[in-house]
Design a protein around this nucleic acid. Structure first.
Lengths: 209, 209
DNA sequence: ATCTAGAATATTGCATACAGTTTACTCTGC
DNA sequence: GCAGAGTAAACTGTATGCAATATTCTAGAT
């Protein structure tokens, strides 16, 4: 149920500021209010909704400034992961990262946005795992989840697919060479371009002000 | 109530692995099980307890490896905050950081551990705020909270107070000079020494294995 | 016509009750 | 004496009811 509500928010079916009243949700999912309240608590912990005492939960409204801060944090975290991955990945992990990356080349040529997106997610997850640090993995995954609503349509922008692939390429090359410094820089720069694309998008659809 | 239970865990009144059954807690705080469940959910989100379906919540048991990963993450995050603070702090913020730091010098000489600890907290909070990034502030604060149980007695170790002050000094000097690189390094190194002290401590009391 | 005050409605927070699962204990067999 | 199965107690998850708070609608005054 948490997943279902989260998807509604991430896909934009629910707009920021919209109220999530417990009774409606309870009816919608055919359960009582108790598990709904539980789900809302979890969504609050994830940061997708905000709760105030004696008021309805509302879909989190993210300011342009806060959005920028999340993308900056994401860039820093990805930079750390790339650096540590370059230093710590096992031979197998490096091979798998490269394989994953090369497999996505076909998708770029075909312009298969959705498939590329799932490969993209997998690619980044490998980079996070490669840092061999459970807590950083948790932080970066959590931040990524919060940014999901704002990244959703970035691959629709013209040329974004190819550019993403090229940026991944720079990261992979550096990681394979155990070049921590350049891996970190490439990963930071990669998030920065995603940030630019997404913040423009967010302003256009009014998801953030 | 969340605070009360959290304190019991942080101060060590509750040992890792210990069960937190809802009925006992409900009686203890003289409320029904519903708000207790709510509190446990929040503690779970903070990471102080773990829940499995149909089982009692238990105080989180942190492995030596996971503890190390949290300290490493903390060092990275403090490094980022120090770097950004060096670049972004306003004149007022720099002045306040320096004042806070100098005020704690007296406490070192007097060996006032508890007072130094609260000044220490304040000092670091200023460093986090100075980065002018809401999301990074959230991440670092959250990580700090999770580490609290393991940092609690570090100032009891002989010479720790003075060493902490000296390390703070290096951070402050770099921040005041807007020397981002050295601020970052000094902050990273500072957490690393806290980590060493705390991991030894944790092993001794058996809070982590 | 617009703003304010009050009442009616709707909604949240907590308590209690019940069903399903887990845990712990006891009793039997080896 | 110990291991295992069965049973009983305890505990969690969900539903429902009630009190307190917030929201909305209506009526009145400026």
């Amino acid at each position: 149920m948490v997943r279902a509500i989260a998807d509604m928010i991430i896909t934009g079916a629910m707009q920021p500021g919209e109220r999530l009243d417990e009774i409606s949700l309870a009816n919608r999912f055919e359960v009582s209010r108790t598990p709904v309240r539980e789900a809302l608590s979890q969504l609050c912990a994830i940061g997708l909704v905000e709760r105030e005492p004696n008021k309805s939960a509302v879909v989190t409204t993210v300011t342009q400034q806060h959005l920028a801060s999340m993308f900056e944090a994401m860039a820093e975290l990805e930079g750390i992961c790339a650096r540590l991955s370059a230093e710590r990945m096992t031979v197998d992990e490096r091979r798998m990262l490269e394989a994953e990356h090369k497999a996505s080349a076909r998708l770029v040529h075909r312009g298969a946005q959705d498939e590329y997106e799932s490969h993209n997610t997998e690619f980044h997850t490998r980079l996070y795992r490669g840092a061999h640090n459970d807590h950083i993995f948790e932080l970066v995954t959590q931040t990524r989840a919060r940014l999901a609503p704002f990244r959703r349509a970035q691959f629709r922008l013209p040329g974004r697919l190819l550019r993403s692939y090229e940026e991944h390429d720079a990261i992979v090359m550096a990681v394979l060479r155990a070049d921590a410094m350049n891996a970190s820089r490439a990963a930071y720069a990669h998030v920065a371009t995603v940030s630019d694309a997404s913040i423009v998008f967010a302003r256009d659809v009014g998801s953030a002000q």
